[in-house]
Amino acid sequence: MTDEPTPQVPYCLRLPGFRSVAWQQWLPAQLPSIPPGAIDLDIGDWSLSCRDLDELLHALQQAGHEVQLLITRCRDTLISAAALGLPVREASNDIHTSEARDDQPNETKTHVDLTVHRGTLRSGDHIETRGHLLIVGDVNPGGSASAEGDVYVWGRLRGRAHAGSKGNSNAKIVALQLRPLQLRIAELVARGPEEQPQPGLAEQACVLDGAISIEPASAPFFAQQT
């Protein structure tokens, strides 16, 4: 151990925002500029399987860099990192922390707190976000989705959903097919309806008179909340 104090903020290595190159080609050029020792690794939107991630960590390790924290915005990578036992943090979708989004058109900035997840949430999967959450796919029984804002499911919601997880009772849950095991909005809990909903009818759940009630989804689907 040296007497030299470790830097307060470790170096943070960011993968490029757009996947135009494979990291295997990108990494060697970056290695010389990375200070040795512990670093943070910001994966950004990259979706890495266990094997990919392991390979990446291995490549860094061989160059003498120990990844002490992984930051990612992609759920698959999050799961991979958890499976490898790596400390991991989900990046907030705050526009200021993300270089990759700076060049997006201005109008998307109003939706900046919307997290989009593509793919099915299977049993045991859990996704939790700040802001609104849009799932393009199903939420299967045993899966759960939680957001501080609204939860939108462009598919079948058959698991659990929690909107307004930090207490916003104006939040709502919208799904193309709403057949949940359980719904939560803010502190309220409701079991899913017993009878099957009409097919082809998007429904939404929101708080009405202190209880969660389900009604046909109202346009606009993505209403902006304050």
Partner: peptide, 19 residues
């Protein structure tokens, strides 16, 4: 059966993350 299907669903998720 619902229990077997539920467990299979979980396993499929894990298989997917493992490539």
């Amino acid at each position: 059966e619902v229990s077997a299907v539920r467990d299979a669903d979980r396993v499929i998720g894990l298989l997917n993350t493992n490539g």
